[in-house]
């Protein structure tokens, strides 16, 4: 390829993966799998999703069935994760709880990303009063502490079904993502291709959705993962405080009963450890995935010299996107 060749390789373009007779793997998947952080994150999250999918096959039928004869048992082959003080099997609660927790996190992430991308990018592109108003709303949402607001809001809710909670969480958490996306769109809006689109008379809607957003896809994906894990943490946290649908099975609900029945104070570690560890595992996976997306999409981060040896160093060395100023 000569210097004059007009078709140059974007730094993001993946190496060709043509394997005859097989489905072609999309480039972004290859990129994510090449990066050690996002690969590890994907494997961790994938594992949890798999567990959630096969949950009914590996759990008992009714995870909340109580059996006082088998109460307060430490982990054993009979009960891998032990039993609660009502004698329910914690392993079943954790694997079935993964379904509700993951689904809710994903639902919040979808809603919040939609809201954040539409509002943030449109505001940045339009500028003027629209941008001022949206930016102001974002800043107000970031200033009012999210958890206390959610605690008070959900206390008024009589119906705390999954979808209600998803909408409430998305309405509070979208601002974190909107700020990032607005910032990114502000940088892009004065690029030539946007100006060209504008000059040819494209409508605002088309420029936002067909020109700006496709070029911000890595940021939007990162925002999605960010809200996903914040939502997971926040929702589990609310349930842990007793503010969810306490009749359902989820990690937060199991944690709530562990706390309310003071199992920790009686020296029982398993009722809080396993649901908590499942949550921490998933969140860590998402954080690594987020860091991987950041590295893949931002070449400057990739250039920083990385230590060669040690899995721990490679995963957590360098820039790791931490909890972006919220969450439990």
């Amino acid at each position: 390829m000569s210097q004059l060749d007009p078709t140059f390789d974007l730094p993001l373009a993946a190496p060709p993966t043509r394997v005859r007779g097989r489905v072609r793997v999309p480039g972004w998947v290859v990129l994510l799998l090449q990066n050690r952080k996002s690969r590890t994150g994907l494997v961790m999250v994938g594992f949890m999703v798999l567990i959630a999918l096969i949950a009914p096959l590996i759990s008992v039928a009714h995870p909340n069935d109580f059996n006082l004869l088998a109460a307060r048992q430490a982990p054993s082959w009979q009960h891998l994760f032990g039993t609660t003080d009502q004698g329910s099997d914690i392993f079943s609660q954790v694997v079935l709880g993964a379904r509700r927790s993951l689904l809710l996190g994903a639902a919040v992430a979808v809603l919040a990303t939609g809201l954040a991308a539409t509002l943030g990018v449109t505001a940045a592109y339009s500028g003027g009063v629209v941008d001022d108003v949206v930016n102001f709303v974002i800043n107000v949402f970031l200033t009012i502490p999210a958890i206390p607001l959610l605690v008070v809001a959900s206390s008024y809710l009589k119906n705390r079904s999954m979808w209600t909670m998803a909408v409430v969480l998305a309405l509070v958490l979208w601002a974190f993502e909107a700020r990032i996306l607005r910032g990114q769109a502000l940088q892009l809006k004065s690029r030539d291709f946007i100006l060209a689109a504008k000059a040819t008379g494209e409508s605002t809607r088309r420029v936002v959705f067909a020109e700006l957003m496709p070029n911000m896809i890595s940021r939007i994906a990162a925002g999605f993962v960010l809200v996903f894990y914040i939502a997971l943490l926040t929702d589990a946290g609310l349930e842990f405080l007793g503010l969810g649908d306490m009749t359902k099975t989820s990690w937060g609900v199991t944690l709530y009963w562990a706390q309310v029945n003071s199992t920790v104070l009686q020296g029982e570690w398993w009722p809080f450890f396993f649901p908590g560890a499942a949550l921490a595992f998933t969140v860590l996976g998402l954080v690594l995935l987020l860091a991987g997306i950041d590295e893949v999409s931002n070449p400057r981060l990739r250039n920083e010299r990385m230590p060669r040896r040690g899995l721990f160093r490679q995963l957590f060395g360098g820039r790791l996107a931490t909890r972006a100023e919220t969450s439990a």
Partner: peptide, 25 residues
């Protein structure tokens, strides 16, 4: 750079209430 800071970062990615419960126990 390689051990202390990453260890704190990993800890900060943990749910705060899980850290608290572990610390309590």
């Amino acid at each position: 750079d390689n051990v202390v800071l990453p260890a704190f970062l990993a800890l900060s990615a943990f749910p705060a209430f899980f850290t608290a419960l572990l610390g309590l126990y």
